[in-house]
């Protein structure tokens, strides 16, 4: 499963969901979905988000093995 620190980065950058969505080319709802963990973004969007904060994709999005997948 993919977990993320997007909200922490966004709050630290002092930008709201609406403005951040405009910066990376998606809607406020999509940013909200990603922050809640209800949506895993495409590679393109993940890179755009990481570039906005000048960090690597893995700093924001962390892939964790699902215990169900291992079994």
């Amino acid at each position: 499963m993919l977990i993320n620190n997007l909200k922490e980065y966004r709050v630290k950058a002092n930008i709201n969901q609406q403005d951040f969505g405009s910066c990376v080319g998606v809607s406020r709802q999509t940013i909200s979905l990603i922050e809640r963990g209800d949506y895993s973004p495409s590679v393109t969007l993940a890179i755009k988000i990481a570039r906005y904060f000048n960090v690597n994709v893995e700093d924001i999005f962390i892939y964790k093995e699902d215990s169900n997948e291992e079994g």
Binding site: G25, V26, S27, Q29, T30, L33, I34, Y39, P41, S42
Partner: peptide, 8 residues
């Protein structure tokens, strides 16, 4: 005008 998540 919908983005990727909305299209899904």
């Amino acid at each position: 005008s919908c983005d990727e998540a909305q299209k899904i």
